[in-house]
Design a protein around this nucleic acid. Structure first.
Length: 414
RNA sequence: GCGGGUGUAGCUCAGUUGGUUAGAGCGCCAGAUUGUGAUUCUGGAUGUCGUCGGUUCGAAUCCGAUCACUCGCCCCA
């Protein structure tokens, strides 16, 4: 039995669920292209180094969540846990750094080895947008605006809230981090076990702790916005002015800290209360040092990723696909003619399903089940008269229509 | 990785203090109707009670382990 189950944290996407995924991806692709993001794709696995260094050795993703293995050639490879690092590698591999700005849209599966929950899987799917080569806050604004537009066209923008923060430039972040470490070291006794660990790995994370003791300690912690240097403050103001100008509502969340090491300046998340513990539906920010860290030129970038499963859980039932026409041969003599008729209609752009077997009642029943709009009955009588019987499956009305010019008579069912 | 909850038919679920042939609704199949579905009526099949082991004369029911799902923590999309 266990062998017949999908591996933990993976799932089959049966047609109903797949339709929801498709609606998410197709909406995102359409909107992203309106903003000038071109779709691209990278391999599903890369050399482990591509992810390990930029994401950060101490992050959970690298230290315990990567699907890493040695292939038959002895290479260390990893199933990608996120999209950005692979896209940056592709930019460098293909010498695209000369062509900035680069604007990419991406969608596909990601892999993280962690305990599954609602909205969290070991194989999950993301849509992703990256804008590389623009150092100005307008890039951040455009990226966030594209995200908001996608959520809006999916009909769920009103169920989310945009949280915004800045991590400052590298200098600001380094100095603030040192201040925080000093402060927390003076209050070690009051910190939770998790936060003592965070103090070593990612002290900014302590600010977002849900532990009561930590919350009390955080009340007295140095506040980040007081330690922003002028350049970082000016940048953040620019992002806010841009969002204000577009009428995009946001809430400043000083405790919003992105997990991956490469983020600078802008950090943001669209969050919802409707998904339990996995409230983040779309998250991203600016990563000005990333490409240099990977061995390329100094080149700024900003982007986001959104979880398709999480978005799919929020959207309303997607519209049904085109209702098919059922072509039903009556008796063996008309089977070949029915096949030809189906092909002819498909060539003309109709969605057509054939009745496969059984008597007419059985085939009509099946036509009903696949939600066919009309059935075309083709028996010896019709063959003789070079016509088909068109039966409306919603109303039960039927009439005989000549084969010649049938496409025009059926136009409204295309 | 840590803690809580739940596993009975394809689906949603009932199943008494441990008791003999484990049930309902929906869905599925067949017939009423061999050229007319969706409605109606009649009949039918659902199953390793998640799995393995233990206690017992007897286990869906009690105990243990394990697997899966689920909720929370960690972290993230």
């Amino acid at each position: 039995m266990s062998q017949l189950q999908p591996a933990r944290g993976t799932q089959d996407l049966l047609p109903d669920e797949m339709r929801r995924h498709r609606m998410v991806v197709e909406t995102a692709r359409r909107v992203a292209e309106r903003y000038g993001f071109a779709e691209m794709a990278t391999p599903i696995f890369e050399f482990t180094e591509v992810f390990a260094r930029p994401i950060g050795e101490t992050t959970d993703i690298v230290s315990k969540e990567m699907y890493t293995f040695t292939d038959r050639g002895g290479e260390q490879v990893t199933l990608r846990p996120e999209a950005t690092a692979g896209i940056m590698r592709a930019i460098l591999s293909n010498g695209l750094t000369q062509q900035a700005p680069l604007k990419f849209f991406y969608s596909g599966p990601m892999f993280r080895y962690e305990r599954p929950q609602k909205g969290r899987y070991r194989q999950f799917h993301q849509i992703d947008v990256e804008l590389v080569g623009i150092a100005q806050p307008q890039a951040d604004v455009e990226v966030i605006a594209a995200g908001a537009r996608i959520l809006d066209e999916l009909g769920i923008l009103s169920r989310t809230e945009l949280e915004l923060n800045t991590l400052g430039d590298a200098e600001t972040r380094r100095k603030y981090r040192a201040l925080l470490v000093d402060y927390y070291n003076q209050h070690r006794a009051a910190l939770s076990e998790d936060s003592l660990r965070r103090l070593e790995t990612n002290p900014l994370r302590i600010l977002d702790s849900k532990d009561r003791g930590d919350i009390a300690v955080n009340a007295g912690a140095p506040e980040f916005h007081r330690h922003l240097n002028d350049a970082s403050r000016a940048f953040f103001d620019g992002v806010r002015r841009g969002l204000d100008a577009l009428g995009i509502a946001y809430k400043i969340n000083p405790r919003l800290v992105r997990g991956l090491d490469y983020y600078t300046h802008t950090a943001f998340e669209f969050v919802t209360r409707d998904l339990g513990a996995q409230g983040t539906v779309m998250g991203g920010g600016r990563y000005d040092g990333l490409i240099e860290l990977m061995g390329g030129p100094a080149m700024p970038g900003v982007g986001w990723a959104a979880g398709i499963e999480r978005l799919a859980m929020l959207i309303a039932e997607p519209p049904r696909l085109a209702r098919p026409i059922a072509v039903l041969p009556v008796g063996e003599a008309s089977e070949a003619a029915a096949l030809r008729l189906s092909e002819r209609l498909r060539r003309a752009g109709f969605t057509v399903d054939q009745g496969y077997s059984g008597n007419l009642a059985r085939r009509l029943k099946r036509a009903n089940k696949i939600d066919a709009r009309i059935a075309l009955l083709l028996g010896e009588d019709e063959l003789k008269r070079e016509a088909v019987t068109v039966r409306d499956l919603d109303t039960g009305e039927q009439s005989e229509v000549p084969m010649a010019g049938l496409e025009d008579r059926l136009a409204r069912f295309r």
